[in-house]
Design a protein around this nucleic acid. Structure first.
Lengths: 156, 156
DNA sequence: ACCATATAGACAGGTTACCTGACTATTGAG
DNA sequence: CTCAATAGTCAGGTAACCTGTCTATATGGT
């Protein structure tokens, strides 16, 4: 008689899921990175993508971005400067608060964000091809049902 | 008539899966990190875990570890020194090759590896609780069917 | 047996992405 | 009107990576 390890539960299954998640995430990050590179953006790192994902939702401040990324204001200022220098982001005065400056994407920043979304979609569509519609739908609903929430940020 | 975006395919679904994978991976890394910390190991980073995962499979050399982690030999040497200094890893002469030294886990290294596995299992079991056995099994098989392969290493 | 080349690892030095701490300017509440 | 809180900057430090160079050992061709 087989043990339940071969079915649903047990540490072996947990470990398999853990490594699967890590591999899938690594494959996604890598796919986005190379896809963005292939589209001509060779001066952005994955961490910048997480910054884009906030800024593209509308003008933000460096302080909010720092909280979103989970890093200090100083590190954020450096990251923003990098993006400004390379023409992805623009700083403009905040009409409502003389201390802060609003961060907005330039046209190039929007293009890069779109490139990242396309690359992510490509990678994920590759999984859908392998899984079939049914398996893909199962993956999708499992991911959302697992309820891992919080801001999207680099993990290590 | 609803569009197929609400069913299986389309860019929206792809994006949802992408962010779900990233969030789940981040939650796992975080869960392992805090779980390992709670078990008394406060001087290891996630990257060390990927080193442990290779070394725990049997004695290795720094060169093989470098390739496994996808970093240079120099960075690997530094990482290994860190682990040796803190009593997780031991260097011993390679009987078959006078140039290389074999890396093996100490008792402390084994204990830390086990702590990481326990923490990972805890985190994954949390998902199983939310998903139910059926959803969890679906997640498991989707992850393995997606066929993302390659060595387990940090992605950014 | 010998030499050329490849490989394992160490040493020196540089880059960068983060950190802490101290500072200025502006806001907002009592 | 002051005073604490907040947005951002400046100065300096740390650690994890990098490239380039070196020695010692191994290996394959002549």
């Amino acid at each position: 008689m087989v043990k339940r390890d071969d079915g649903v539960g047990g540490p072996a299954a947990a470990w398999e899921v853990a490594t699967g998640v890590l591999r899938m995430s690594a494959a996604l990050v890598d796919g986005v990175q190379t896809g963005v590179l292939r589209r001509g953006f060779d001066d952005v790192r994955p961490a910048h993508g997480f910054a884009f994902s906030l800024i593209s939702r509308g003008p933000t401040t460096a302080a909010r971005l720092a909280e979103h990324l989970g890093i200090t204001k100083q590190a954020t200022a450096e990251l923003v400067q990098h993006l400004v220098d390379r023409g992805y982001v623009e700083r403009r005065p905040d009409p409502d608060d003389g201390r802060s400056r609003l961060l907005v994407l330039t046209a190039r920043g929007v293009a890069c964000t779109r490139a990242a979304e396309e690359a992510a979609t490509e990678t994920v569509e590759g999984w859908r091809t392998r899984l079939g519609d049914e398996g893909f739908a199962a993956l999708r609903s499992a991911l959302s049902a697992a309820g891992t929430s919080g801001p999207l940020r680099p993990s290590w």
